[in-house]
Design a protein around this nucleic acid. Structure first.
Lengths: 248, 248
DNA sequence: GGGGATTTGTCCGTATGTATC
DNA sequence: CGATACATACGGACAAATCCC
């Protein structure tokens, strides 16, 4: 035997120490929870982790790489390892991969994502329509004016679009909502970029649909707002299906 | 110099070969896409990958571990590596960790997840209420009868609950919907288990709420169904908040 | 069931790039 | 600029799991 000593492996012997890799991953996560480390806090170095966990550097690194993929830790080359933001980037990676994986019809996988986003936003706008303050309506107004300006120039405005939908739901005080929507948005546009789809061919129409949503919100007309949102998604779907047909 | 020869490193020298790790991850994903590999298909062995990618085994393994965490590949000890299901387990892991990480008030993070689930299901049941067939209503009936049986015995039935909500939306033909709902459900119950919360204290009431949803669906009463679903979530919230207070 | 081949899991030692001070 | 601490990457070796004959 070359490397032995099994300092702290006794506890796992009864369990059969199955899948040491996943075990180390859980132990590092538990370490973060136990020490109440916040996102951005420094983690022990790899050397310290191999000592405290009693495993080799390779095992520690594989576990850290897995946690990095989940955005649970953040590794800065030559500097250190830190607690991550636990964002939804893993969801984006997974959904993007899954969608690209269905070569025959990405419309299916993409349509599913779009349907979920539509259901979400239709329900969310109902709740937000009642609690939206005048100040928030004004800031939405400013965003839409930038849209219309781009629309007049015939330029697409994916980032402003994203900004609008994010600003719509800030008043809910729900951090998860904008992150989920942003995740879906990222998947959609990443797939579009890989597939080489064209940009929005009619930005003025898209801007008008957003304007429609805002006027409904100003009137506190929940039904109208919901229908305007649904129309907006019809537009998105039309663009996507047209793009897939155009490419084929 | 011990390991030299740098066969295929020349191409990266100009780029500065930044972040080889993440690069390998993308190359393996691209390999799956290029070869049209389906979930369950075998991947090249680690040795073949280090040859074809021109990197060491450690680097290959770290990339594979990251992809494993995303459920993009599946590694079987002593057998081989396979294309994974690209499920939403990364989302479950991330949200669970994030929720447990907020020790002071998990009610906040958990409340956000619950709100998203509620918005989703309220919107989904509207769409499903119109297209549900009699056969599907009957299968929902069977599930609810099992609930009521458990309810009379005073036993909790988390699994049947999950089954009901999954069966509700099969007619949509959207694979992502049940997976997302299952993910949220898993986060909720995993956190509950870690926190040591009590089980459903009034299963009969929970069963009755589900019965209410079904009767509304049978009557094709969309508004009623939506309200019944909302009531159901009020019950879940009440249980959760009561549990957190009880523990504290 | 036994044995050998294949494949992943773990470990060690070392050299190198990178960021901070 | 040098020193230091850290992550990155490589090669080689052995252990453990699985499969097939």
């Amino acid at each position: 035997m070359s490397y032995g000593s099994n300092l702290s492996a006794m506890s796992e012997d009864l369990v059969g120490r199955r899948h040491v890799g996943g075990q180390i991953r859980r132990e590092i996560m538990q370490l973060i929870l136990d020490r109440r480390l916040r996102p951005g806090s420094p983690l022990p170095t790899e050397s310290e982790l191999m000592d405290s966990l009693g495993v080799s550097r390779n095992s520690v690194r594989e576990a850290l790489k897995a946690l990095q993929a989940l955005d649970i830790v953040e590794i800065r080359h030559g500097y250190g390892t830190y607690v991550g933001q636990a964002s939804l980037t893993p969801l984006v990676d997974g959904l993007t991969f899954r969608t690209l994986s269905q070569v025959d019809d990405d419309t299916h996988a993409l349509g599913e994502i779009l349907q979920v986003r539509e259901v979400l936003e239709e329900g969310l706008i109902r709740r937000v329509a009642e609690t939206l303050s005048d100040a928030e309506l004004d800031s939405l107004e400013a965003i839409i004016e930038r849209m219309e300006e781009k629309g007049r120039a015939g330029e697409a405005f994916p980032e402003i679009d994203r900004e609008f939908h994010e600003a719509l739901y800030t008043s809910l005080g729900n951090e998860l909502v904008p992150q989920l929507l942003a995740a879906f948005w990222n998947v959609f546009h990443r797939v579009a970029r890989v597939r080489g789809w064209a940009r929005d061919p009619a930005p003025a129409v898209t801007a008008r649909r957003h304007r429609e949503i805002l006027t409904a919100l100003r009137a506190r007309d929940v039904t109208h707002a919901q229908r305007a949102m649904a129309d907006h998604f019809r537009g998105i779907e039309a663009r996507a299906w047209q793009a897939t047909l155009g490419v084929k």
